[in-house]
Design a protein around this nucleic acid. Structure first.
Lengths: 109, 109
DNA sequence: TACCAGTACATAGTAACGCTGAATAGTGAC
DNA sequence: GTCACTATTCAGCGTTACTATGTACTGGTA
C-alpha cells in the first residue's frame, strides 16, 4: 500500500468491512481476497484479521465457526444490530467528510 | 471530535490542509479557525500545528514569518512544487478510495 | 513418504497520526 | 492589573494499519 492510502484507510477500512458484512456474512480470508480483487491489491493479510477481532470485541458482529473443505475452519462474521447502528453512524461521518473534501477538490474553499 | 471522525481524519486532514494552502498561503491559527467554521467544530488546536511542522519537515511547504498586529508573529505556510505534486497524489488516492466507498454505499458490492 | 501450494487464522512489534492538556508570548480593552 | 483574544509549541496517549512470522488443515505430486 502507498503510505497515503495506508493512512487514509485508518478509520475507513473498518467501515468498508462493516459495509461488506452488512450485505452478507463473510470470513476473513474471503474479505481480504475480495478487497484485493477490487483494487486494494497489497492489503496486508493480517490487517483484516486484527480488524475483525476488534469489531467482534466491540460487539458489532456475531461469529460462527464453519468447517471448510479446503483448510482450517472459517470464522464467519455477520453484522448484528449494534453493528448496523455503528455502520449508519459511519455513513453519516463519511458523508460529511467526503462532502467537505469534495468541495475542496472543486475549488470551493 | 467523534471517535469515528478522528480516525477518518488520519490521512485526510493532511490533504485538506494542503488543499487549503494550494488556494492561498495561510497560518496555523487561521487554518484551524476556517476549518472550525466549516463544520470541524472541535478540531483540536494543537493538531494543525503538529501537522504543519510535519509537512514542513517533509519539504512540502515554504514558511515565512510575518508580524501580526494582534499577537505573536504568524508562520505563514505556502505550498511549493513538491507539495503540489504530493497534493495531486493525494487527490488520486482520495478519488480511488471515495469511489470504492461510494459504490459500497450504493450497495454495489 | 516428503514436500509444496493453497486455504485460513493469529499475533507481537512498529510507525504514523490526531487528540489531550498544558505552557508560553504578544496585543488591546476594561 | 487582569482578562480575552491571538498565535505557536510540545510531551504523552490511544488507535490504527503494516511487517513479519507462525500455526494448522487439505490435496496434489514427485
Amino acid at each position: 500500500m502507498g503510505k497515503q492510502m495506508t493512512e487514509m484507510l485508518k478509520g475507513t477500512l473498518e467501515g468498508i468491512v462493516l459495509a461488506i458484512l452488512g450485505v452478507q456474512p463473510a470470513y476473513g480470508y474471503e474479505i481480504t481476497a475480495r478487497l484485493r480483487e477490487r483494487g486494494f491489491e497489497d492489503l496486508a493479510e493480517g490487517t483484516i484479521y486484527a480488524l475483525l477481532i476488534r469489531i467482534e470485541q466491540r460487539g458489532l458482529v456475531d461469529v460462527e465457526k464453519v468447517p471448510s473443505e479446503k483448510g482450517p475452519p472459517r470464522k464467519v462474521y455477520s453484522l448484528n444490530r449494534r453493528g448496523q447502528e455503528y455502520l449508519e453512524e459511519f455513513w453519516r461521518t463519511w458523508s460529511f467528510l467526503s462532502e467537505r473534501i469534495g468541495q475542496l477538490h472543486e475549488g470551493e474553499v
